[in-house]
């Protein structure tokens, strides 16, 4: 399958380290992926896998933390955005790349009206009048399918439900028609029925506005629903990537297989859910070889000694596992 769409975002060998008092924490340790124009790329991983830090690195939102991009490039349409000034990063946020977050309940300013929160983003990036901006904001909010839009523009966040707030967040992120939308677990805090509605909404607006989406989640069900391509992260590294069909059909990294097995299957009367044994290692005491080896049921001697490379197993499907060294499991 030849993909002719151009690369809108390329992350190359990204290393984001946090410099804490007790040492350097390598939250993102060599991540590569490409987001094609108009595509949805899923980044999957457990808490602590570095997926959120990757998104914050792209957004340039590490300021104020001890985190820094230590190495690597982030190319937005070929232009490096990892090493530009704070002011340039600020101008890029909200207009070129925007982001929605996991917690719709706390992600809106409680003492500011919805209308103001939407318009201030437009006014920051575009040179138009307040009235025009307000109109634009109202139109965008209407697209998200919330009821009584005129009314809601004058309301405060506490008057809205969780699903409505997430719709407001989506409207806010898309109101300047950014090239990329980073969605960091946007549906995790919502009811399952609302989740489905929000995912549909994001898909619809993606088409309409022509945004590419970077979808960060731990939920493989959601990935199957919305993503074209998937990147699986573990301990700050990409352990497997591929298009969504081949990854779900032929998962090759034992971690991906474990994640897929831990989803309860409909119609199977399982006594207990399958789990991946153990925990994500403490970043200060990383295993020497493959970072997943201590939890891997198929690990052998080499896994403990040497970190595997990224092996291709065909059609852009790649896996960081010694079992794939000779192509395929």
């Amino acid at each position: 399958m030849e993909d002719n769409r151009k690369n809108i975002l390329e992350v190359k060998n990204l290393h984001t380290y946090f410099y804490t008092d007790s040492g350097v924490v390598k939250s993102v340790d060599g991540v590569d992926f490409v987001l094609k124009e108009g595509a949805t790329l899923g980044i999957v991983g457990e808490s602590g896998s570095g997926k959120s830090v990757t998104s914050l690195s792209i957004m340039g939102l590490l300021t104020g933390t001890t985190g820094k991009i230590a190495e690597g490039e982030i190319l937005l349409e070929g232009r490096d955005i990892a090493h530009i000034s704070e002011e340039e990063k600020r101008k890029m946020r909200g207009s070129q790349i925007s982001m929605i977050f996991q917690e719709p309940m706390t992600s809106l300013n409680p003492v500011m009206k919805i209308g103001k929160q939407l318009t201030e983003c437009i006014l920051q990036h575009q040179n138009i009048s307040k009235e025009e901006a307000y109109q634009k904001a109202e139109d965008m909010l209407r697209k998200t399918g919330v009821p009584r839009v005129e009314h809601m523009m004058k309301e405060y966040p506490f008057q809205l439900s969780g699903g409505q707030r997430q719709r407001v967040m989506i409207a806010m992120a898309l109101v300047c028609r950014p090239k990329i939308l980073i969605a960091d677990e946007p549906t995790t805090a919502l009811d399952v029925t609302i989740q489905a509605q929000i995912l549909d909404l994001m898909n619809d607006l993606k088409e309409e506005i022509g945004t590419s989406i970077l979808f960060i989640t731990h939920d493989l069900g959601v990935v199957a629903e919305v993503c074209d391509e998937v990147v699986v992260m573990y301990c700050g590294r990409v352990v497997e990537k591929g298009d969504v069909y081949s990854l779900f059909a032929k998962p090759s990294h034992p971690y991906t297989i474990g994640l897929l097995n831990s989803i309860p299957k409909l119609g199977e009367a399982a006594e207990e859910l399958e789990v991946i044994p153990g925990n994500v290692p403490n970043p200060k005491y990383m295993p020497k070889g493959c970072k997943f080896a201590p939890r891997c049921s198929r690990a052998f001697d080499k896994c403990m000694e040497e970190e595997p490379g990224f092996f291709s197993i065909g059609d852009g499907h790649m896996s960081r596992c010694w079992l794939c060294e000779k192509g395929g499991v």
Partner: peptide, 26 residues
């Protein structure tokens, strides 16, 4: 530290606006 401050920054607001427009009143 609040989430809505991160949102304000993600919108690309100037740091001045983040402080006085969002953090101050709260």
């Amino acid at each position: 530290k609040e989430d809505y401050i991160r949102t304000a920054r993600a919108k690309g607001l100037k740091e001045k606006t983040v402080t006085w427009g969002h953090a101050f009143r709260n």
